[in-house]
């Protein structure tokens, strides 16, 4: 189950990053002042969200606290 979630996160993150790269390429080919705004506003946002989502997928799952008492040290 956990692996499926990681794979799903990787796919979504990857798609966002690919979209961000496509937007960056378009902004580089479109030599106008608005191209920079497109690069930062759309391309940068997509890339940032993609990277953050990927890093989030690397986090280990939260460990549930044990209901049993800890053994005392002798």
């Amino acid at each position: 189950m956990k692996e499926i979630q990681i794979e799903r996160a990787l796919r979504i993150s990857g798609l966002l990053l690919i979209l961000g790269i496509v937007v960056e390429i378009i902004s580089l080919l479109w030599e106008k002042p608005l191209a920079f705004l497109l690069f930062v506003g759309v391309g940068g946002a997509l890339t940032f969200v993609g990277i953050v989502l990927y890093l989030y997928s690397l986090l280990p799952p939260a460990v549930e606290s044990s209901s049993q008492p800890r053994p005392k040290n002798s």
């Binding site: 990787l10 993150s13 990857g14 990053l17 961000g20 790269i21 960056e24 391309g43 940068g44 890339t47 993609g50 990277i51 990927y54 890093l55």
Partner: peptide
Amino acid sequence: AFCILPVLCG
């Protein structure tokens, strides 16, 4: 691919 290269490209 997901971290280093996108930051470098950006």
